[in-house]
Design a protein around this nucleic acid. Sequence first.
DNA 1: CATGAATGAGCATTCATTCAT
DNA 2: GATGAATGAATGCTCATTCAT
Lengths: 231, 231, 231, 231
Amino acid sequence: MTASTPPGKSLRPRLRADAARNRAQVLAAARTAFRELGTAAPLDEIARRAGVNIATLYRRFPDRDALIAQVVLDGFAVVLDAARTAAQTARTDPLGALETFMLSLVDNRETLVLPLIGGPVTNDPQARDLQRQIAAALEEVLSAARARGAVRPDVAAVDLITTAALVCRPLPHLPQQQAATLVTRHVGIFLDGLRPNTTRQLPTAPTHEEVAVHLAPGPPEEAPPSAASDR
Amino acid sequence: MTASTPPGKSLRPRLRADAARNRAQVLAAARTAFRELGTAAPLDEIARRAGVNIATLYRRFPDRDALIAQVVLDGFAVVLDAARTAAQTARTDPLGALETFMLSLVDNRETLVLPLIGGPVTNDPQARDLQRQIAAALEEVLSAARARGAVRPDVAAVDLITTAALVCRPLPHLPQQQAATLVTRHVGIFLDGLRPNTTRQLPTAPTHEEVAVHLAPGPPEEAPPSAASDR
Amino acid sequence: MTASTPPGKSLRPRLRADAARNRAQVLAAARTAFRELGTAAPLDEIARRAGVNIATLYRRFPDRDALIAQVVLDGFAVVLDAARTAAQTARTDPLGALETFMLSLVDNRETLVLPLIGGPVTNDPQARDLQRQIAAALEEVLSAARARGAVRPDVAAVDLITTAALVCRPLPHLPQQQAATLVTRHVGIFLDGLRPNTTRQLPTAPTHEEVAVHLAPGPPEEAPPSAASDR
Amino acid sequence: MTASTPPGKSLRPRLRADAARNRAQVLAAARTAFRELGTAAPLDEIARRAGVNIATLYRRFPDRDALIAQVVLDGFAVVLDAARTAAQTARTDPLGALETFMLSLVDNRETLVLPLIGGPVTNDPQARDLQRQIAAALEEVLSAARARGAVRPDVAAVDLITTAALVCRPLPHLPQQQAATLVTRHVGIFLDGLRPNTTRQLPTAPTHEEVAVHLAPGPPEEAPPSAASDR
DNA sequence: CATGAATGAGCATTCATTCAT
DNA sequence: GATGAATGAATGCTCATTCAT
């Protein structure tokens, strides 16, 4: 599923080939720039990286938030893909499905801009819808697993989402490889923590609706540390 | 241990009372501003929150990085405190010590600015030293736990630090209470994942030196999402 | 020769008409502002005088030094013009050529920002090159004059350049007219001092290279007196 | 004659020893700072160079202009000294006296802050008075020289003052030694230009009153070139 | 459609000056 | 008398955004 070029139902009347290419390049540049510099990254820096003029960027995305929104939607689409794949194999191997799901996100970390909880926010109904679908698919996986006694009964889809949100954020100052190792270890331990026969009790999970309801307007998030000197 | 007012060994010849108060207020304001707006938060916003003039802020901290550095050092100091406390009870109850350590960080999340891996970086030797001490204390706890077979043998101090780094970052767009619940659940599952009799194998952990060596110059980090419109 | 719009060999791909006009206005404003307020003149003051926004100024000249450099280059171009004119008539009337050269600079004083020695510095290779050409042209004039016994044999091009540098700097606190009279008298006496049959011996002149070699990094220069109150 | 500690007639009730030392250090620091950075040099930079606190500087000199004024007065006093010395030997050797006068100023260039025309302005009556005395002494030298036919008849005291003003300004970007050589050569040629049997006619000189009358409020002067980057 | 150019507004930083110790 | 500290006000510079080509 191509994330950034939503199906024909879109209002967009189908772009000219070069315009579509520019749009894709802007999104790609935004993705990396947002991860490296934060979502406050200068828009002309993004335009430069995309090899287009700043005005071209503005033609496609009326403001920063529109750009962020699209990047996030693209991220959600990737996650939804993974979640659906997991749902498909849930019947036969729910634990393996879970593991594959989490690790595929870790692998795609670099192209995901903080999707899910913790990411930049949009009150876009599409985003809401995608989140709902993601939660549903994961819940499906979990109930299959619970039915087999493969996971602790108190784990919820929101826990998987939280984990994804935490581990997909950039770990700056660490080389790619090392960051990947550390995060993979973390996910491994987390997955082991999903086994049944738990020793400890978790606080009650919020429902998906409780979480989603806050995804709309929301307060800003954290920012980049300016390793050496911000500007 | 008072973090922001290091003992007399400091070069600073002891501040006048009012100056010290101002300095502390600036640091407190910076802490929250950094969490809410990112480390690129406007410095005059920080000064305003602290109730001092921007020039006063500059008198204490010659530039943004100096301010970040101090905030991070303070964060490290808090973590070191917690780690040492854990080390003290490690003999009698290593698992409890671990749990208390992790949860105390979650509780203090709000006053910690991305300490440890993933936080804003400083090549300050003090920061290095604190990190080293933190790692040492945690290793002490872990070896006590391993000796009793209370934890899986392949877990390392760096895993605890990674986890702390991940869960201490702000989860914007979520109300405090909910964020706390989600993170606490995550930590709970993670802790359960530390039990022995593991089902899965973790990739080899990097040594503390490998991780620390990258804490110096480092590339920038992630950034704020600009919920509505950044500027 | 149009000083500020170097021929097509320039990298600049030819400015749009309005942009070129703005650029010229900025340079003109800078010229007078630098003379009146020093090269530390507020850049927004310059922008205001030029009737453009400060950001427009920055678009053309990335920083103060770039602006200074261009103003100086323009000054050098004017001087080179004069020197070449002098060289052309040197054969027939070397003394007259010298006099015309010096007085033309005095006349253009107002549009020259400390060109030559003593002016703001640039390590721009173009500047170096212009200086070299100026020195060469003047040397040509002088050798023609020396050949006829029209000037003392120990005078060098560097002396003419020094004199130009000295007399082209603003004499603040004096009305234009009076400053012009005083400087013209000074130049007149200086020119008379160039006659042969000298009574006194001059210290050995540095070579042009010796002088030029110091034009690169260089320490700052003198500054404005702040007639009433600088700020 | 000690310039910066004017005779007892001063209003200042005689400073305590350490205060007097501080005052002298501030003036010395101001002298060099003004030459290096312009008269807009940061006052706290001057205080730092003087080794005193900025508030101490303010205690002695209520504002920048007061400091400038004193520095200029000191400069005038040095010039007056030299002019009087010249007047004393004018009877026996007027030309030598002139030469010695000019060269002594060149030698003291470094400690003179733009004295005379072209320097920072003061409406201080003391400054006026000093200038008058300087002009008188120089006129005395010149008339002795004219009487002997040792100089052209059309040279006036104002020409000497103009020349002094021109050559005493810093020539930045040139090493001390080279600047000295160039300026000395210039003065040498100028002095040779003072001989009688002139070939050219000078424009009529303004009277000393005409010149002095403009020394009061006056527009600002030129400024420092910011060799590399102003700030 | 794409771009060069212009603008206004924000933020960092510095400095003169005053105040309290 | 001297100093550390605080402040307000400039100024430099950058960026989002709009306009004209």
